[in-house]
Design a protein around this nucleic acid. Sequence first.
DNA 1: AGCTTGTTTTAGGGCGCTTTCATAATCTTA
DNA 2: TAAGATTATGAAAGCGCCCTAAAACAAGCT
Lengths: 398, 398
Amino acid sequence: MNACSFILSEKFLTINDNDLIESNDYDPTNIFPLKYPQKPGGKERQLRGSGMVTRKDVAKMAGVSEATVSRVFNNVGPMKESTKQKVLAAAKELNYHPNAVARSFALGKSGHIGLILPYVPKVHLFSTYYFSEILSGIGEGVRRHGCDMLVMFRSPHESVDYTEPYRSRKVDGCIFLGALNVPAQREGFRELDRQGMPFVLINQHYEGETYSVVDADHEQGCYEAVKHLLESGYRRIAFLNGSPQYSNSADRLRGYYRALNEAGLEPEPELILEGNYSRTSGYAAAARIAELGGRVDAVFSSNDRMAVGLMQGLKERGIAPGEDLAIVGYDDSEAAKLSDPPLTSVYVPFFEMGLLAAEALLKRINASPETEELPPSFHERLSTKLVVRASSNPRPGN
Amino acid sequence: MNACSFILSEKFLTINDNDLIESNDYDPTNIFPLKYPQKPGGKERQLRGSGMVTRKDVAKMAGVSEATVSRVFNNVGPMKESTKQKVLAAAKELNYHPNAVARSFALGKSGHIGLILPYVPKVHLFSTYYFSEILSGIGEGVRRHGCDMLVMFRSPHESVDYTEPYRSRKVDGCIFLGALNVPAQREGFRELDRQGMPFVLINQHYEGETYSVVDADHEQGCYEAVKHLLESGYRRIAFLNGSPQYSNSADRLRGYYRALNEAGLEPEPELILEGNYSRTSGYAAAARIAELGGRVDAVFSSNDRMAVGLMQGLKERGIAPGEDLAIVGYDDSEAAKLSDPPLTSVYVPFFEMGLLAAEALLKRINASPETEELPPSFHERLSTKLVVRASSNPRPGN
DNA sequence: AGCTTGTTTTAGGGCGCTTTCATAATCTTA
DNA sequence: TAAGATTATGAAAGCGCCCTAAAACAAGCT
């Protein structure tokens, strides 16, 4: 269904880096010692930024004041067209680029949005479908606005001070991915909120809090998946959930209950397994499912990754996924399309979620209070969509 | 053909630019209006950063000079333990955080490393195995050094000034992914090099240039893959290459020639196809392969993604990959393990490549010229590894 | 105490840019 | 054409932090 992502290619890279290793009279401590263009009559104490062309140079060359150069570059205030041209010409001639850091400094804002990712040792975070799609969406959002994103990793369980990047003015706002419902994080967000620092959570909500959130309707998504299994004739449906610290795990659990209830079935505690969204945890679950034997005729897995591991484990035990046991996954990742049998899964618009979060955050950061009145927070909940494939073929004889 | 584009577009908001229009004591346009802690006797002109606690406050409270506070926080120069404690206590009491932007400004370096990614419309860049693995590696590298990375998108064909982020002091160095061998980029890198700005290319090298590069030995990787096919009894081996703008495409082509030559075979031009690393291009290639009929008995594809598309296309034409036609992919992505039949592929240590690139770049950026002598550039070429699976089972009767 | 070393702290200038306020240039209109 | 209204420009004060140079303090000797 998405023939798009293909586009890119994957392989190429090369790099080199040319730093300037050595130093010389012009300041050894400068990270860019010699090679930056030197201003003709540089001063002695070229501690940093050595030969940088500044506004002052442009002003002098154009025969105007620095303030005027500033106005031209920010396109603010009235100015004569001729002045403007003079300044631009001088700037071009000198190859002047405003110093973004100095600007941020003067303005008191960085112009960056932060992306806080959980640091999980050994896990290639970007390589998980979930993160990568959301990141793509966020990337698109910030790109459209011409701003950059600062990616930061934080250990999810450490007590972290989320306000730090704001106070240090590294970011103007943040998007949090993979947040957990654990005390350290609850407290972190509460403080952020209290301080009025703009942030958006993706795919995670906290009971009783009104933070800005973009997520998907996982309860409904799971409900439909389980309902689909029920309608396909399955009755003993196991639920392989992910870590309970994620609100979406709980959401799905509710959907599972609702579907069973509607069908007049009683959920059986032993059919509810807990994994951690990893493939290995799905693989491990296969052992348990195998033990349960005939007590299970279908499994709903909270993500595709676990479903893939589960199928592998089942195959190794001689149980044929899609035939002996129906399987439904979640996320509708690439893996769902490629697996054997192809995996029925629930599509989640991760890309849009990321995009939405980025745009909403940027909107808020850039809003000027007098012109627009923004609600203090918002909760956008996108809908999911079941994609049926062979792994959940109707139960034979149904 | 691309179900993706639908995704967003219309619905979301746009953001207005963020100049702060006007000022006043409490400054409504301030992105963090009221809620930042207000200093008790704040001055009138609280243009930005409103009530930020600064070094000055800490100094006053601790009864020392600002310089001392600075030294304590940078842990530089001699100081009495008692002074240090006084300062730290005051800082804690006031909840002081050094302003990172001001620091960057004073230092003339940002403390960020830039990650330049190609902007390809509609493509979920992060979701490709290639990029995501490398990114994970880079992420790990910068995390270890406690610095952050600034992700930026650049259109690969536009004439871009790569020096801009350096000149504007947003980054101290950059890593480039997905660079192309096209004039605009060649020129961009040349300028960067001339200016002595530190950068590293991943998986791309330019003939005649000595930029710092981290890549893998794709010639050898392809050579081994093709040799494997030859040893498995195949003789008419087609080569589905990716876009020639990537140096690794050329590298692989050399490997292909070398393997054939060694086997005493003459490469046939019509067996060399060009895709663009996308799944659809692989799918399209299936038509051509089918046309060639018995003239082809195996295909080496320059990445797994194309191989997957190719297999799909072949299946639709009644050709069974792995039986009627052997297939070998490249990258050893998840898809290779999941495809049906499982795809023989060439493992490339993308994660390590990213990690290596980040570490090398940071090392150079942080090197103090007087203590360490670094080579002007380096070229790290990691080795690949063939992973044999069912898609290249030996030719029947071989 | 007076001197000399050595250690710890402070003063002060500067980084490049934004913004207010005052001044200078230009334009209206009576 | 002079007074008033407008518009364009410049001067200057920060923003918060780093760093050099120099001052202040402490200790060791004679």
